[in-house]
Simulated scan of single mutants.
Amino acid sequence: MNSRSTVPVHGDGEEKRHTAKTPAAPPGPPGRRVPALLRRSLAFAMLCVLSATACAPGGNTAQDGPEPGATRTATPSPSPTPSADPVVRDVTPAQWQKMVETSMWREGCPATRESLRRLEINYIDFDGEIQRGVLVVNADIAENVSRIFTRLFHERFPIYRMQPVEAYEGDNKASLEDNNTAAYNCRRPNQINAPLRESPHANGRAIDINPLQNPWIDLRCKCWSPSDQYAERTPGKGVILEGGLVWQTFIEEGWVWQNIKVPDYMHFDTGYPSIPVTDNKPSPTASVGPPPSPISSPSP
């Protein structure tokens, strides 16, 4: 007979063994007991020392941080569509003064400050970058020229350089040799190709584009100017070809190409003797700048 005694604990007859409980140790002396809350605070402080980022407000854990080697970059905003941004202005006092000083205007030149306009417009250079250029043209074709060069910009036809000829002290030869696209120039006596009153350039109704890629036969030396490097008409950067983009754009606006008896691939004008184009429609893209203040330079 088993001498271990059991006692019923529950009404269903289940039994549990009596187990003697060890008496709890008496509390320690007052002042030496470390409260549980303080122990937890000390443990948390040690954790912060070991891992400072874990305690920083809003700190990332390994789960929500970037993967090793990943670099966060800001999402780029879309770039605005490039524009030719043409602006037609009156010739400024400073520019007109320079034109007079360099003899680009003198007695006998048909155009005046009042009849000329300054067209500021963007163009694509030979590196594919956008540059700001200036053409001085007759007021009666300013909007027409604005449409032409706006189209060339959007078609990304490259232009090497575009600045008024007074930047070359009025020297047309220097402008051509610098591959500069320009319009108005009442040329020096030793550089004129036509009587001033009839000359398209002297009236601001002619444009020479990329002279190096589109040379002409200079009647004075019967040689290619500024160079014979691109005398042969083959497709290339900045080259003007009959039936091509530049030719078509000017022809559609009423201009004439090579209006001379010798090859002059750079040259477009509105007719000889100089006349306005017959259909000078207002440009929907050009804006008109403020008029300049008067100056004391002579003007016929």
Rank of each mutant, 00 (worst) to 15 (best):
N2R: 08
R4M: 10
S5C: 04
T6I: 12
H10N: 13
G11T: 10
E14I: 13
E14G: 06
E15F: 03
K16V: 09
H18T: 07
P23I: 14
G28C: 09
P30T: 02
R32E: 14
R32Q: 14
P35I: 06
L38R: 14
R39S: 10
L42T: 03
F44I: 10
M46A: 15
M46E: 13
L50D: 03
A52S: 03
A56L: 15
G59W: 06
G59P: 01
D64R: 04
G65Y: 03
P68L: 04
G69D: 07
T71E: 12
S79A: 11
S83V: 12
D85Q: 09
D85G: 03
V87K: 10
R89A: 10
D90Y: 09
P93N: 08
M99R: 08
E101Q: 09
T102E: 08
S103Y: 02
W105V: 14
R106D: 11
E114M: 08
R118C: 12
I121C: 02
I121G: 00
I124R: 14
D125R: 08
F126P: 04
F126Y: 14
F126W: 11
V134K: 01
I141Y: 02
E143I: 00
E143P: 02
N144F: 00
N144E: 06
R151H: 13
L152D: 11
L152M: 12
F153I: 05
F153Y: 10
H154C: 00
R156G: 01
F157K: 07
Y160R: 11
M162D: 06
M162T: 06
M162S: 02
M162E: 08
Y168Q: 12
G170Q: 13
N172T: 15
S175T: 08
E177C: 08
D178Q: 12
D178P: 03
A182Y: 15
R187S: 09
P189E: 12
R197G: 15
S199I: 00
G204N: 08
I207G: 00
I209F: 08
L212Q: 08
Q213G: 02
N214A: 09
P215S: 03
P215T: 03
D218T: 02
R220P: 01
C223G: 12
C223D: 11
S227C: 05
R233Q: 12
R233L: 09
G236K: 01
G238N: 11
V239I: 10
I240D: 04
G243P: 09
L245N: 02
Q248Y: 00
E252Q: 13
W257D: 07
Q258W: 00
N259T: 03
I260K: 08
V262P: 01
P263K: 05
Y265F: 14
M266V: 03
D269M: 00
Y272T: 15
P273V: 03
P273T: 06
P273H: 08
V277H: 00
T285W: 12
S287L: 05
G289Y: 04
P290Y: 02
P291N: 05
P294D: 11
S299E: 15
S299A: 12
P300S: 10
